[in-house]
Nucleic acid binder design. Structure first.
Lengths: 166, 166
DNA sequence: TTGGAATGTCAACAAGGCTGACGTAAATTC
DNA sequence: GAATTTACGTCAGCCTTGTTGACATTCCAA
């Protein structure tokens, strides 16, 4: 009678207590996840919002402002404040779209790329250490659960990387 | 020559590209993770900070303000603003410490417990769905990686639950 | 009895969200 | 060719949640 629906596996991992542990694991781990880049950003006049913008511009060079808006899920006013300071400091540059001149295609400058590298080096170092300590099997599970936790739209943006230059 | 240091396992999961995927997985998943409670909180006059307070008071009834401060990692002024509104609305009550009368032991009222349940029900539902979709093996890996990603202090707080009533 | 710890509180400020309204240039549609 | 829509920018104002700094109270402990 036991383990009927699971093909022999117990469902102990679905108890409320286990779920609470998972929730707190997300909370504490996310703090660690952001702490290293945060420390770097604090020394400059930037915050996490700048980090996110720089990250995704680096990931998809030539992305439009609108594209960034949907990925980040903020208002254009909020994003604009961040972008403006990145322009002013010469970290990001905008090129008028070739086919559609209303668009502004965003690119990192050398200086911007350098900051991106510094930030992601720090973040990757922690991630690498965690991955190495946990092993490939665990990493596989980690990614599987995180993906299952996303919203539909978010999952699509997470999976699709190639359509930044349409 | 290959797989020398890993006992036969490839290290493909440690490439920069894999790490970047992991970073973005955290980003998108955390958004999903917080979205359901956020929707509830939005209908009231509360925010994520209230959620966190209510969560940890529920987890460790009788915790002192100082204990909460170290768990949440914010300043007392910031926490106090949140706690005051929770007091005013009758969600949390403070009882003077028995041995040390300076301390205020925090407890949820029935009303507070009801809110906590609503919030964590929503959050657990998503977590449960993700866990169920991913399976126990993946969940194990998920927890392992998250734990490895925490700071020392955070990991200690994550693991130790019993010392709230010292 | 006195120093320090635990707590509360006032004031001021910043980052980074939000809404609403308005403007401009380019593309698209009619 | 005119009208509408789209992409983007900007001004103004508001909220939450974090921060520092200063100061008061209460009470434990040496």
């Amino acid at each position: 009678m036991a383990d009927k629906a699971t093909g022999g596996e117990s469902l102990l991992f679905l108890t409320d207590e286990q779920l609470r542990k998972g929730i707190e694991a997300m909370f504490f781990a996310y703090r660690g996840f952001t702490s290293d880049p945060d420390r770097i950003l604090d020394t400059m006049d930037y915050g996490r919002a700048h980090h996110r913008a720089v990250h995704f511009i680096n990931r998809s060079p030539g992305a439009t402002v609108g594209h960034l808006l949907t990925i980040l899920g903020v208002t254009k006013q909020s994003l604009n404040r961040v972008l403006r300071s990145l322009f002013d400091d010469g970290l990001v540059e905008a090129r008028v779209g070739k086919t559609d001149k209303r668009e502004r295609r965003l690119h990192l400058t050398d200086k911007g790329a350098a900051l991106e590298r510094a930030l992601s080096d720090a973040q990757r170092a922690r991630m690498r250490a965690a991955y190495r300590a946990a092993g490939p099997q665990a990493v596989q599970g980690f990614r599987t659960v995180l993906e299952a936790m996303m919203d539909q739209d978010q999952r699509r943006q997470y999976q699709g990387l190639k359509e930044s230059n349409p």
